[in-house]
């Protein structure tokens, strides 16, 4: 009960109606606005989500490509290094065999002549005061003061191997 007289009530009725109508239309406007805003936000969120998914897929594919390339390159490198390591061991084996075989040349009939020539070389390089001794592996070792020249057979064999182009071909194939 609002304490108004019936006459006043009747007089205010149109005002109330007008107020109500205006409030209702405002509500409808708000609702429409809110609905539009919601659908706009939804649409932009969906677009953004789609964009994020696309970007993520692209980034994922790119990183997978990079990762795959990296892995394959590492595997390829390991394979290549295996080949190189094998070549290295071939050389080592060759050098080892060569050192062993070189020492056996002491029984060759040309060995004394080789020794004489090596002695001459030592005197040319280190002077007449050079002291020359035989190496246990064959060949000679010359000493003059603080200078020493090792011309033992394994050293000579190694020097020869390093200078032969055809020997290099063995491990470059």
């Amino acid at each position: 009960m609002n304490g108004l007289t019936p006459v006043s009530e009747a007089a205010l009725a149109p005002v109330r109606q007008a107020l109500r109508a205006s409030a209702e239309s405002q509500v409808a406007e708000f609702r429409n606005g809110a609905l539009q805003e919601v659908s706009a936000i939804l649409a932009s969120a969906q677009a953004e989500a789609a964009q994020i998914v696309t970007n993520a897929a692209a980034a994922g594919a790119a990183s997978a490509r990079t990762e795959a390339a990296l892995r394959s390159s590492r595997v390829r490198r390991e394979a290549h290094e295996l080949v190189l390591a094998r070549q290295s061991s071939v050389i080592e084996e060759l050098r080892h065999q060569l050192a062993g075989t070189a020492s056996k040349l002491q029984s060759d009939p040309r060995y004394p002549e080789l020794l004489a020539r090596l002695r001459e070389n030592c005197q040319d390089l280190l002077g007449p005061e050079v002291s020359v001794s035989s190496s246990s592996d064959g060949g000679i070792i010359a000493v003059a003061g603080s200078r020493r020249l090792d011309l033992s057979l394994p050293v000579l064999a190694e020097m020869t191997l390093d200078s032969l182009p055809e020997a290099r071909e063995l491990w470059n194939r």
């Binding site: 280190l126 603080s146 200078r147």
Partner: peptide, 16 residues
Amino acid sequence: PAPLSDRFGAQISHGD
């Protein structure tokens, strides 16, 4: 390839 004796000079080891 030069004769092997040409490279003997590079084999001299200096110990001083």
